[in-house]
Design a protein around this nucleic acid. Structure first.
Length: 753
DNA sequence: TAGGCTGTGGTTGCG
DNA sequence: CCACAGCCTA
């Protein structure tokens, strides 16, 4: 044991061995945070703390998985009995045992974001509210915000300030919708993601015996990424660890500088309050960075220094300087893609970097496409993270909805999803009538469906549907999850629906459906026992609980060595030898959405900080002078963050092969020098692409002198055609066949005069 | 009721 | 530009 402690530095050791009382670990990027967490757990076990007394909370499944694996490595078998998982999954597990105490069925459904949104939209429709004034997504967001701040519908309705602000925002009835949504979830036996926390809190609050039980049990609570917790999560942590006679063994690990989820309710205030709420809190700062070279670490410190509110911390490294940070200035987004891919080829060829040590990080997922195209062209295997997860795909959700509804007859959203898919003649007007009846008579939607009689077309269709569902339900006890799922897929017509579609998309949908069935089969047949605090359960209901909280499918099919493409958010917690951080332009990174609020800009800056600290040794920062956005070419100024890290010192020395590096040295405080188009020497036969700045196509007129990247200077003779199809005839004296017809839509021409 | 068409609007995203 | 929602017609 002492053995493994010796592999830790001093601060890490203290953070690991200070087991009693409240502890806050501020952990810079690459400072061995996960190591500290896992060793701390191993240390506790070593000291004789029983594994079931340890509760380790993370935000993502991936982090949880990683932690479990690493604990197992250091601590062996006992590790599997430690409760380590996401807030959502662990609380949902407890809620499953205790749900009835707070009015939910044990087999409660978990509504995902889409379900929530649909339900809210349905309420707005049913109440004849103006959907312009009450956009379902905004309402959902607001409800989520209220829940994350531990504000129940009743509290909301009494909060004059909120009500007034809603009125000012022209949604005075928001509180009603919130109340309605809350009730409908209760009636449907469904919890949304926020409820998994909120209802768990309620459980502890309203049932002191239950609270006592879990307090006695979880003597040691650890939280990862504490800066990402919201008010409600912190409230739960306090409930569990702060009470009369409590040992107050809460250990929180986080980094305020890496807080990038304020937009979804995370608040750094929790770190600040931690100190006040837990007297005698011991704080450890992990500042030594083991990941990156000095150039990168210094750049990171420089940017983050521009933030106003922060816990003072300077990361350092004893690694060598390493490669300089390199800047690529591209003419446009396509060029950016090409240059990045060229550099990747070079990294592979010269440095022999494997693909999986290379990442392209961007602010918005929409930026991935161009890189994808170029990588494909070079046959470089890549994988795009983010976007739609497996379980969010329509075809997958369709089958899951059937299964959910079979298990929980009150689940309204699933019923609405499947009742007429595949099409069976139960249309919108029928559904509207059913919904009205349900709300008028206080029935669940399914009860309302059951009462729908008659020999009309829809009546018969409904009767057939009811028979089918009842048939499914009868089989719950006799068939295992897989056989039942297969039966449902075939009988409902879902399978054939997708089987008959021969388009590329259709085939992929069928494959996904098959993959889902395979997954269910694996679940039923797996003999791996997962410790859940209750008997291993292979029921359909158990399966559904399991997947409701999964986000990524993560099957590594075939290729394992690929370049990673992902948003900066998705890259948090990861590291790569080489990182290309692309699209460093004002309005894009920092995002245009953040421009009006200094706090938001600070969050963007932390995001930038997270991004550059992913790199171990190679870091490229790229920006394009213009790029397509919403269908039109936009001109972009270079990101302020690029200036803030003061790349003058990181710039590659002269003599570098042409395009890479050059970037104008920012003059102190004056960015103008940077942002105006540099004048290009007229004699330049070969134009320097880093200073070339194309004009917008519609500005090109006959008689103008223009520069073309390949052809050099030319004179526009005439312009024909309309808008998108305009063609210019240009004479370039320096080339063979000087007269060229150039499609302006695609041309990169810079007006000289 | 179902499928085609027009109009609108558009970050980031864990569970 | 592109995805999706809602409207309108067969």
């Amino acid at each position: 044991m002492a053995d493994f402690l010796s592999s830790l530095n001093d601060v890490q050791q203290q953070a690991v061995t200070t087991t009693e009382g409240p502890v806050l670990v501020i952990a810079g990027p690459g400072s061995g945070k996960t190591r500290v967490l896992t060793y701390r757990i191993a240390w506790l076990l070593h000291k004789g703390v029983p594994p079931h007394a340890i509760l380790a909370l993370t935000f993502t499944n991936k982090a949880a998985r990683e932690m479990k694996e690493r604990i197992a490595k250091v601590a062996g078998r006992a590790a599997s009995q430690v409760w380590a998982g996401t807030f959502h999954s662990l609380f949902s597990r407890i809620l499953r045992l205790e749900a009835e105490k707070i009015g939910f069925p044990r087999d409660f459904t978990i509504y995902d974001t889409e379900d929530s949104k649909n339900l809210i939209a349905a309420i707005i429709r049913e109440w004849n509210l103006d959907k312009e004034a009450y956009p379902a997504n905004a309402v959902r967001h607001r409800i989520s915000g209220a829940k994350s701040n531990l504000i129940t519908p009743r509290m909301y309705a009494q909060d004059q300030e909120r009500l007034q602000s809603d009125t000012a925002n022209r949604m005075p009835l928001f509180y009603k919708i919130y109340e309605g949504y809350y009730q409908r979830c209760l009636k449907a036996g469904a919890l949304d993601f926020d409820d998994l926390l909120l209802q768990f809190y309620r459980l502890l609050q309203e049932h002191p015996d239950v609270a006592d039980h879990y307090r006695q049990r979880f003597r040691y609570v650890l939280v990862d990424e504490f800066q990402d917790t919201n008010f409600l999560q912190y409230a739960i942590l306090k409930k569990l660890t702060l009470y009369p006679g409590s040992p107050r063994n809460l250990c929180a690990v986080g980094d305020d500088a890496q807080s990038i989820y304020a937009f979804r309710g995370a608040t750094i205030d929790n770190i600040l309050h931690f100190e006040q709420d837990y007297a005698g809190l011991k704080t450890f700062k992990l500042e030594q960075n083991y990941r990156s070279t000095r150039h990168i670490v210094e750049a990171a410190n420089k940017v983050i220094g521009h933030n106003r509110r922060q816990i003072r911390k300077t990361i350092w490294t004893d690694q060598e300087e390493g490669h300089r940070i390199r800047v690529i200035r591209a003419i446009n987004d396509t060029e950016e893609g090409r240059r990045v891919t060229d550099q990747i080829m070079e990294l592979k060829n010269r440095e022999h970097l494997p693909n999986h040590e290379i990442a392209i990080l961007y602010r918005t997922n929409a930026q991935s496409r161009i890189f994808e195209e170029h990588l494909r062209r070079h046959n470089i295997p890549y994988r795009i993270y983010g976007g739609q997860s497996f379980y969010q795909r329509k075809e997958v959700k369709d089958l899951i909805a059937y299964l959910r509804f079979v298990v929980n007859a009150r689940d309204e959203e699933s019923l609405k999803r499947v009742i007429n898919f595949p099409r069976r003649g139960i249309g919108d007007s029928t559904m509207e009538g059913l919904a009205r009846q349900a709300s008028d008579q206080g029935l669940t939607l399914w009860e309302s469906v059951l009462r729908f009689g008659g020999q009309t077309r829809s009546g018969k269709a409904i009767a057939r549907f009811v028979d089918m569902v009842n048939g499914f339900r009868e089989k719950i006890t006799t068939l295992n999850a897989y056989d039942l799922a297969l039966w449902v897929a075939k009988t409902s017509g879902l399978y054939d629906e997708y089987a008959s579609d021969t388009s590329v998309e259709g085939i992929s949908r069928r494959e996904n459906l098959q993959a889902l069935l395979d997954g269910i089969k694996e679940f039923t047949e797996s003999d791996e026992e997962v410790y859940t605090g209750e008997a291993t359960d292979k029921s359909l209901s158990s399966y559904l609980q399991n997947i409701a909280l999964l986000t990524d499918a993560d099957e590594d099919k075939g290729e394992t060595d690929f370049v990673s493409l992902m948003s900066v958010h998705a890259a948090k917690g990861l590291e790569f030898e080489a990182v290309f951080l692309v699209g460093l332009e004002e309005q894009l990174f920092p995002s245009f959405m953040s421009m009006n609020n200094p706090d938001d800009i600070d969050e963007e800056r932390r995001l930038f900080y997270v991004a550059i600290t992913r790199a171990k040794s190679h870091l490229w920062l790229t920006h394009a002078l213009s790029r397509y956005r919403y269908g039109q070419m936009r001109h972009n100024e270079v990101s302020r963050f690029l200036e803030e890290i003061d790349l003058a010192s990181a710039e590659e020395p002269g003599g570098v092969r042409e395009p890479q590096v050059q970037m104008a040295t920012p003059r102190s405080g004056v960015s103008g020098a940077f942002r105006t188009a540099p004048t290009v020497a007229a004699s330049a036969r070969k134009i320097d692409p880093t200073t070339f700045q194309p004009s917008l196509p519609h500005q090109i007129r006959a008689g103008m002198k223009v520069l073309h990247l390949k052809f050099g200077e030319g004179e526009v003779r005439q312009v024909e055609g309309q808008t998108d199809n305009r063609v210019a005839t240009i004479v370039f004296p320096d080339i063979d066949q000087p007269e060229r017809r150039i499609m302006l839509r695609f041309a990169k021409l810079q007006i000289v005069e």
